[in-house]
């Protein structure tokens, strides 16, 4: 079995050998390591993408917009991913972004996961029939199994930054909170005046 360190190093070098800069290659190395640690086929997708690149020049966005299109082409996952991470605050403001087509979109996921951590919000990615939750660079969950999947492209790629909100109902919270207070002690009058450091009246 390959170690994470080996995966990071080889992925970085292979990306550089395919014409990307060292700075981008460093990002890809870390991302592929992260995908493999999550049990997703980072190495398979990377290898397939780098082979496919022999025939064309990859492109990324020149700026981040709500709707991002390249005429007749697909976005490169590396240039797009780094542009998104770099423009994290803008992504947070836009909340929803679309890209018309992305090559090997699974390679975007670790960028989005890191973006999620950077902005402190969960992100849902919809890429064709897949819907993927990315949560603060801790885990990825999907409506369909992507573990051994190599996706050549997605014709639609949508990023949705979720509002921070509770997943539970207010009444559920009230019930749980009520139960938690059974660990508290009901203070007698004497305890009220002696159990804390200050007296009953704290007069500064």
């Amino acid at each position: 079995m390959k170690s994470s360190s080996e995966i990071d190093t080889v992925a970085k070098r292979a990306t550089k050998a395919s014409g990307f800069s060292w700075g981008i290659a460093e990002e890809v190395g870390k991302n592929i390591k992260s995908l493999e640690l999550l049990g997703i086929g980072g190495v398979e997708n990377l290898n397939a993408y780098l082979k496919a690149l022999k025939n064309h020049k990859p492109e990324g966005p020149q700026e981040i917009l709500k709707n991002n299109k390249l005429q007749g082409k697909s976005f490169c996952p590396f240039y797009t991913g780094t542009a998104l991470i770099d423009a994290a605050e803008q992504v947070l403001e836009l909340k929803t972004l679309k890209f018309n087509s992305i090559d090997y979109p699974i390679l975007m996921l670790p960028f989005i996961n890191r973006l999620s951590y950077k902005i402190g919000r969960m992100i849902i990615v919809k890429m064709d029939k897949y819907e993927i939750n990315l949560n603060l660079n801790r885990f990825i969950s999907s409506n369909m199994d992507i573990r051994n999947t190599v996706l050549q492209s997605s014709q639609s790629f949508e990023i949705n930054v979720l509002e921070s909100k509770d997943t539970f109902k207010p009444e559920t919270w009230e019930q749980l909170y009520e139960l938690s207070t059974e660990t508290f002690v009901e203070e007698s009058e004497r305890l009220k005046s002696t159990a804390a450091g200050a007296g009953v009246i704290d007069n500064d």
Binding site: F20, W22, G23, E26, E27, E63, Y79, A83
Partner: peptide, 12 residues
């Protein structure tokens, strides 16, 4: 961010 989009060779 804007600088890096056009100058990714210096990202590292």
């Amino acid at each position: 961010a804007e600088f890096l989009i056009k100058n990714d060779d210096l990202r590292h």
